[in-house]
């Protein structure tokens, strides 16, 4: 007799828990299949110097680097920009930029106005390299190790909290692991 009432109640409670967890997840955070894989090879013209190139080779010149996908039309990029500037000033980890589907002049003007935290930015005008990197929403930031393997990907603007809790531990570990 008791079980007859307890069973639906139990099922209901299980559903509530399931939905609560499901609603708490962010559907925009699609796990990237690129994690722990070799970063896609690419060669792009540099944003500031179109005749020079920027490619995967530059990413393996240090034990760890950040690759930030950005665009002047991207609102959330502006939001994370001050923090990228701060990171660049600290100089712990080199930041490379991938300027995604942007007009060169717009991108350069944007960096002039807000500051340029990037060592180099590649200019991906048609977004083809972005597709190889599985980019679907700017800004996105990849942590790439010295062998050119993607170790972490963050979708959306980097906040100090995201940096402290998610990205910095990965970066530190790679830096301590030696080249």
């Amino acid at each position: 007799m008791k079980a007859r009432f307890l069973l639906p109640l139990g099922l209901f409670a299980a559903l509530v828990v399931l939905f609560a967890v499901g609603l708490g997840l962010n559907p925009r955070e699609v796990p990237s299949p690129l994690i722990d894989k070799q970063a896609p090879t690419f060669t792009l013209p540099q944003l500031h110097a179109p005749e020079a190139s920027f490619g995967s080779r530059e990413l393996t010149q240090q034990p760890v680097a950040l690759v930030n996908i950005w665009a002047s039309w991207c609102v959330a990029c502006r939001q994370e920009h001050p923090f990228l500037m701060e990171l660049a000033q600290r100089g712990d980890v080199p930041i490379y930029g991938l300027n995604y589907k942007d007009e060169r002049a717009d991108a350069i003007a944007w960096l002039k106005r807000h500051g340029n935290p990037y060592r180099v930015s590649g200019h991906d005008l048609d977004g083809r390299v972005g597709i190889d990197w599985g980019v679907y929403g700017v800004p996105e930031t990849f942590v790439v190790d010295g062998r050119g393997v993607i170790r972490y990907k963050h979708i959306g603007p980097i906040t100090p909290q995201v940096w402290r809790e998610k990205m910095e531990p990965v970066v530190r570990q790679l830096q301590q692991g030696g080249a």
């Binding site: 699609v30 796990p31 990237s32 299949p33 690129l34 597709i131 990197w133 599985g134």
Partner: peptide
């Protein structure tokens, strides 16, 4: 597509 964006 799946290599880049996953099963999603």
């Amino acid at each position: 597509m799946t290599e880049r964006y996953g099963d999603f």
